[in-house]
Amino acid sequence: MSRIAAAAASYAGLIFAAGFVLGTLRVLVLVPRIGAVWAEAIEVPIMLALSFLVARWQVARHGVPARLPLRLAMGGVAFILLMSAEIALGVIGFGQPLAEVLTGYGDPQRWIGLGGQIVFGLMPVLLLLRGTRP
């Protein structure tokens, strides 16, 4: 089980780092020009492409077996870690109250990103279903 946790942690960490960079660019460059919804709609497919590549790499690197329960575990743990890091960034990094960070997910404008994060969590399973080899 430790290889699943290691794969999930590295997958979540790498995608969080990429999301931090792309999110900064989105907020500073795209949002003022095209608005938050369109900026998010541009960022999410890029993040999902990165998620595909990183998930495939981490599955191979950590030898995660092609078994549905193990891939669900990897994706579920990665999703929890990613969401925890995002919430911590909002609270600790940006000084937002926890309640504000959590209620922000109810904003329809944030649903595009949340949908992408859910697909991120499902990516190890999607790789399995697609039959993608590392």
Rank of each mutant, 00 (worst) to 15 (best):
R56A: 10
D107V: 15
T24L: 09
P97H: 11
R26D: 10
I112L: 11
G23P: 04
S51R: 00
L127W: 00
E86L: 09
F52G: 01
L70G: 03
V31N: 08
A36C: 14
W57K: 07
I46L: 15
L72E: 01
M83Q: 10
R71V: 08
R130W: 13
M83W: 10
W38Y: 15
L81H: 05
Q117G: 13
L128R: 00
M123G: 01
R33T: 09
A18D: 05
R26W: 13
G23E: 07
G104Y: 04
V44L: 07
H62G: 04
L48P: 01
L129W: 11
P69L: 09
A55D: 05
G104L: 08
L28I: 10
L122N: 04
L30N: 06
L22Y: 04
V77P: 01
L53G: 15
M74Y: 04
E40K: 14
A55E: 03
V91P: 05
G115E: 09
L82P: 02
I46S: 11
I80M: 12
L126I: 03
E86S: 13
L28W: 11
W57G: 06
A49W: 14
I112T: 11
L28S: 12
V21W: 04
V29M: 14
Q109I: 15
L114M: 06
L89G: 15
A85F: 04
R33V: 09
Q58R: 07
A60M: 07
